[in-house]
């Protein structure tokens, strides 16, 4: 069933209004399919009915569900692989050297979705950096979607989700079967914390991070918003801290004060020591 263009626009505008995420005009099919699935979840007859309710009732909870439905993306473990290799071979060792005296490390997964990215980091640190077991680790994951954050906190994943990019050795080492799915082990779960955060709203107080992962989320924002978020991210990094973006994304020309550094096939951005 095709949604009327004005209904599609309504959804696109609502999403932009609340989250600054831009859904282009070509996203008709995406809006239809996601809202139809949401209708099914809610026991409503159709996508049209969901939108009619939104317009009629001004229901904040329903609005939140719609935004969640439109902004959730598929995610995988160790996504793209190479950035994690860069973390392992260069970025973490450098951070450990820098922090040798205070023996603490802080990493933020800033569009963490259902948690795979942050848990991947936690597993990598546990398996490749045993020295860190006596350090203070602050591993933080945030996302605009409450539903995604709750799922991340649960540490529960379906078989289909587990298949996505998780090395078999990690599956064996860090997960247990839980019903028809899998649960990440408590010792890894206890190393991380998740919270809801809308990148365009004021950020809560947070530590300064050695690494910020902001991957594949800037593409959904317009230029001004991207600039603003990158500026804030820079302030949230320690001196010499590193920003990691998604494969096709770049900071250049948007914000000063980042120095691109290529490690293998990955380009990351160092907070420039000269320009604070």
């Amino acid at each position: 069933m095709t949604l009327a263009p004005k209904d599609v626009s309504y959804v696109r505008e609502l999403v932009f209004d609340r989250s600054a995420i831009v859904l282009g005009e070509d996203k008709q099919y995406l809006v239809e399919s996601r809202i139809t699935m949401l209708a099914r979840d809610l026991g409503l007859g159709s996508a049209e009915e969901v939108i009619a309710r939104l317009k009629r009732d001004g229901d904040r909870t329903l609005e939140e569900r719609v935004i969640e439905a439109m902004t959730t993306n598929e995610t995988s473990w160790f996504r793209d692989v190479h950035p994690f290799n860069a973390l392992k071979s260069v970025i973490i060792p450098e951070a450990m050297e820098r922090n040798a005296a205070k023996r603490s490390l802080a990493i933020w997964s800033a569009a963490c979705s259902t948690g795979q990215e942050l848990y991947s980091v936690a597993m990598m640190l546990d398996s490749d950096f045993p020295e860190l077991s006596s350090w203070k680790l602050d591993l933080v994951g945030t996302d605009i979607s409450r539903k995604a954050v709750e799922k991340a906190q649960s540490g529960l994943f379906t078989g289909l989700e587990i298949n996505r990019g998780l090395p078999a050795t990690m599956l064996v080492r860090y997960f247990v079967r839980d019903g028809s799915g899998y649960r990440i082990r408590d010792d890894i779960r206890n190393k991380v914390r998740f919270g809801v955060l809308n990148l365009i709203e004021p950020w809560p107080p947070m530590p300064l991070f050695d690494v910020i992962l902001l991957r594949n989320v800037l593409i959904y924002f317009d230029m001004d918003t991207r600039r603003r978020i990158l500026g804030l991210a820079k302030q949230q990094l320690v001196q010499g801290g590193v920003l990691i973006l998604g494969g096709a994304e770049s900071v250049l020309s948007l914000v000063d004060g980042f120095v691109p550094v290529t490690i293998g096939t990955t380009t990351v951005y160092h907070k420039d020591k000269e320009n604070v």
């Binding site: 995988s76 078989g159 298949n163 996505r164 990019g165 090395p167 078999a168």
Partner: peptide, 21 residues
């Protein structure tokens, strides 16, 4: 001697990601 392991059912993306690993 297996290097990787994929549990059925799986999607095409899952295969590509294992190949990347």
């Amino acid at each position: 001697g297996a290097h990787e392991y994929l549990v059925k059912p799986f999607t095409a993306d899952a295969v590509a990601e294992k190949l990347l690993l």
